[in-house]
Computed example of a mutant assay.
Amino acid sequence: MFVSTAYAQTAASAGGGGDMLVQFAPLILIFVVFYFLLIRPQQKKMKEHKAMLSAIRRGDRVVTGGGIIGIVTKVGTDDEITVEIAENVRVRCLRSTVNIVLAKTEPAGKSGGDAATPVVEGEAKPADTAAGGIGKLFGRK
């Protein structure tokens, strides 16, 4: 005949639980690496963004998801804020659409002045006017 007879081979003995652990070790290692490189930093970033959104107050300069830059004029009790994008042009938008807060305002109790005065690093503060500003130009402090 043209076909030879095939005999069933006996299966190799299973080593037990230790052999199974060695097979799953690469998968477990990949999951651990993904957790520390992708999942955990993303959760941290989402937590920071949520804290930033909850800290939005009137006078903050923000950038919305659509790229519109404006100043928050009203913070509603809901998830809604009013942003002034030009003189006398106000837009209502959801708080969750804010991507970045460019300039934070000082709370009214800290400075004792105007609560809507933004504080941005590198900009002149209200005390840095006239004589103080000229002195800085000539290297005086």
Results as ranks from 00 to 15, higher is better:
Ala55Asn: 00
Cys93Ser: 14
Ala124Asn: 09
Gly15Pro: 04
Ala11Phe: 07
Thr77Val: 06
Ala130Cys: 00
Ala108Asp: 09
Leu29Ser: 11
Val98Arg: 05
Gly16Asp: 06
Phe2Gly: 13
Asp128Thr: 09
Val119Cys: 02
Phe34Asn: 12
Asp78Val: 06
Ile134Asp: 12
Arg40Gly: 02
Leu37Ile: 08
Lys74Cys: 07
Arg57Trp: 05
Lys141Asn: 12
Val83Ala: 12
Leu102Met: 15
Gly139Val: 02
Lys104His: 14
Ala124Ile: 00
Val62Ser: 02
Gly67Ala: 08
Ile39Gly: 07
Pro126Gly: 00
Asp78Leu: 01
Leu137Val: 13
Gln42Val: 05
Pro107Phe: 11
Thr10Cys: 03
Thr105Phe: 00
Met1Glu: 13
Ala130Leu: 04
Gly66Val: 05
Glu123Ile: 07
Leu137Ser: 15
Gly112Gln: 04
Ser13Phe: 10
Ala131Cys: 08
Glu106Val: 08
Glu123Met: 13
Ala51Ser: 11
Gly139Asn: 03
Ala115His: 02
Ile85Pro: 06
Thr105Leu: 00
Tyr35Thr: 10
Lys125Tyr: 02
Thr97His: 12
Arg57His: 04
Arg95Met: 03
Lys47Thr: 15
Ser4Tyr: 14
Phe138Asp: 05
Lys110His: 02
Lys125Leu: 01
Thr129Cys: 05
Tyr35Lys: 10
Glu48Val: 07
Thr64Gln: 13
Ala127Tyr: 10
Ser111Lys: 13
Gly113Glu: 00
Asn99Tyr: 11
Arg140Ser: 15
Arg140Ile: 08
Ile28Gly: 11
Pro26Leu: 01
